[in-house]
Amino acid sequence: MSTVTWITARGLFGRSRFLMLLPLPLILIGLAVLCRSLGVDPGQWGPPVLVGLGLAVVLPVVALIEGTGVLGAEIDDGTVVHILTKPLPRWQIVLPKLAVAAGVTAVTVGVPIYVAGVLADSVRLGLALVVASAAGALAYSALFLALSLVTRRPVLLGLVYVLIWEGLLGRFVSGTRVLSIQQWVIALADRMAPTPLLGTSVSVPVAAVLTALVAVGFTVLAIDRLRSFSVAGETS
């Protein structure tokens, strides 16, 4: 494990904001178990729990907390200077931090979405959701990590993207779905485990290509912004 990864992981698990990650996955598992135990038809509870809660809320919100936290929290408290005053190419800082954010998001979302997928349909759907949400975790994390370097309000902008763009516009303006990570995740999962529980108008090739483009593009942007990172003077 690289030193940057180690410091990032220690910082993440040492901060109270990590506790914020726990309720949403627990609610997702709880709802799936409740519906299954009450014998509700999966066709009724599957879409709102798997997509409405799992992929539309839990995945982006966890990714938002992680993606903006791995670097944004260090920028906020000034500890980023400790890492930046080292003779490291900036990609050696961004990539480990992205790996931690995407990895923790993938695990935090993967476990409950797998359980919910298995309870709703099959192990195959559970695994498809795990793989697709891992790809989504990478894309979301790259986006939010880059946001923490281009704006002082990454959480606010991230919420605007998730709630307004994906949540609101995605529901009423079908064209916006092409630029929605959530829809790409659904398309990828549906391709791996076709099921009526998941439905999207975005094609699989478009989803795969755009997921890769967003992950790579925002990572490159983050590396470039970190190269030009400026520290604001306190007393000037």
Binding site: G11, R15, V81, H82, E234, T235
Partner: peptide, 8 residues
């Protein structure tokens, strides 16, 4: 100047 250290 800023007192920035990883307190953990």
């Amino acid at each position: 100047e800023r007192e920035a250290v990883h307190t953990f």
